[in-house]
Design a protein around this nucleic acid. Structure first.
Length: 395
RNA sequence: GCGCAGGUGGCAGAGCGGUCAAUUGCACGAGACUGUAAAUCUCGCGCCUUCGGGCUACGAAGGUUCGAAUCCUUCCCUGCGCA
């Protein structure tokens, strides 16, 4: 269930609350990524101390890892030791891209970065779903199975299985893939209505926990396809909506502008896989309620720490004698403990995993706190001023 | 003192007549990272360059050869063994 508390007068931004069986999320909010049912490098305690309200795990990876054990899975809240935290699962639709055309085209979902070397496409996409190839052979994941797995995983918010496309796909392909994603959306909805058959819960005689199902809008960077998709998906009885697929670095705002007006105002909207600071402001301004992105956690392990002035790379020589904490005045455990930049640099150099832990704690806190300030600004009616002020202080 | 094994770019360690400014790893430096095959990956790493190339280099000095890090001689140094 989603309540909107405040709408911004000068933009599409809104502040709200998502209620689930395992707690609430204040929106706008940032989902911290815990692909394999754990947020890398930090403990559940540290995750919560860093003000996390929302976490996202991954259907494809858990399915591959758990295998047979999926039927005995205790549920994500128990597994992740987060009984009162809202958890999402991505459907596996992103892996269609990351194992498929993402490799073949050597690109990420946001066009504009560095291109990698092209490699083998490990997917084969059919009308019913997708064949993924790995060392063990070929395995099939489609909308129906994704829904079944997500029910067993037991997240509060689950996503329809979609085909995430590459930013390099042309119009014809995007259109073709969009048709599939739309047909799969219906399969997902239908599957979601079927009574939950998770044996453990039936034995206990408990009603299954509510799962909100989000549909996903695709369409690449093409205006008519994006609008068509938003119209189509937006009209289906989903509990919320994800906006997925490929973006141009400079086109994200434009794409959101095409899509959002067709999505029901009263339902929550999630921007899939997006999470740089500028993108968060852009998303919120255009009416996005939740985000998820690996940036805070992945970059922390690679040396990147976020501050109000932007990202700093703690591995760099210039921090060799820097006795400051990552960010002065920051309330995260790492900064309040007084761990300095040069100490962190030293830890990275020594491959001491505590560097990644310390900086993950900081980054997660940073992004969660930023979302808190955005919510506050919306509530106070000065979101756009806050946005301008915040972005102008970044280098 | 004798015998043996060695001395290669910041380090370790390949190469053993031309395709060697020299494999590789580490260290170092720069850059990536947006629904996590990522605690990962890419690039650079003698000096100079108009990016074609030029110069100085494999302990030192001589020599053989069209050509030497690679072969020979002497010297210096290191490790191990024997005295």
């Amino acid at each position: 269930m989603f309540d909107i508390l405040q709408k911004d007068k000068n933009s599409r931004a809104r502040a709200g609350v998502i209620h689930t069986s395992h707690g609430t999320v204040e929106t706008p909010s940032y989902a911290i990524v815990g692909t394999h049912a754990e947020v890398r490098a930090i403990s559940p305690r540290e995750l919560l101390d860093a003000k996390t309200q929302l976490v996202i795990a991954n259907t494809y990876h858990l399915w591959r890892t758990l295998g047979e054990k999926l039927d005995l899975f205790e549920g994500l809240h128990e597994r992740m030791k987060l009984p009162d935290t809202v958890i999402m699962t991505d459907s596996g639709g992103f892996q269609v891209f990351s194992f498929g055309f993402g490799r073949e085209h050597g690109v990420g979902k946001v066009l504009g970065g560095e291109k990698k070397k092209a490699s083998d496409n490990l997917t084969r996409i059919t009308e019913e779903g997708v064949f993924f190839t790995n060392e063990e052979g070929e395995h099939f994941l489609g909308p129906k199975l994704s829904m079944e797995i997500q029910k067993k995983l037991g997240a509060d918010i689950i996503f329809a299985f979609d085909e995430c496309t590459s930013p390099e796909h042309d119009y014809a392909y995007q259109k073709e893939a969009l048709g599939r994603t739309h047909r799969w959306a219906n399969v997902c909805l239908k599957s979601h209505e079927i009574p939950f058959s998770y044996s453990r819960e039936l034995e206990n005689g408990k009603a299954r926990d509510e799962q909100m199902l989000y549909g996903i809008v695709q369409g690449g960077m093409f205006e008519d396809l994006r609008k068509e998709s938003a119209k189509y998906i937006g009209a289906l009885p989903f509990d919320g909506f994800g906006i997925g697929g490929s973006f141009g670095e400079k086109k994200m705002g434009e794409v959101l502008g095409w899509v959002i007006p067709y999505l029901p105002e009263e339902k929550p909207r999630h921007l899939l896989g997006i999470g740089k600071i500028e993108d968060l402001f852009l998303g919120v301004e255009n009416g996005i309620d939740t985000f998820d992105c690996v940036i805070p956690t992945r970059e922390a392990r690679h040396g990147g720490a976020w501050t109000a002035k932007g990202r700093i790379d703690l591995k760099k020589n210039k921090f060799k004698d820097d006795g400051e904490v990552i960010e002065n005045g920051c309330g995260c455990e790492t900064c309040t403990a007084g761990i300095t930049r040069h100490q962190l640099r030293e830890m990275y150099k020594l491959k001491d995993l505590r560097a990644g832990t310390s900086v993950t704690i900081h980054n997660v806190y940073f992004f969660n706190t930023l979302m808190g300030r955005i919510r506050e600004a919306i509530q106070n009616g000065n979101f756009l001023e806050f946005k301008d002020r915040f972005l102008s202080q970044m280098r």
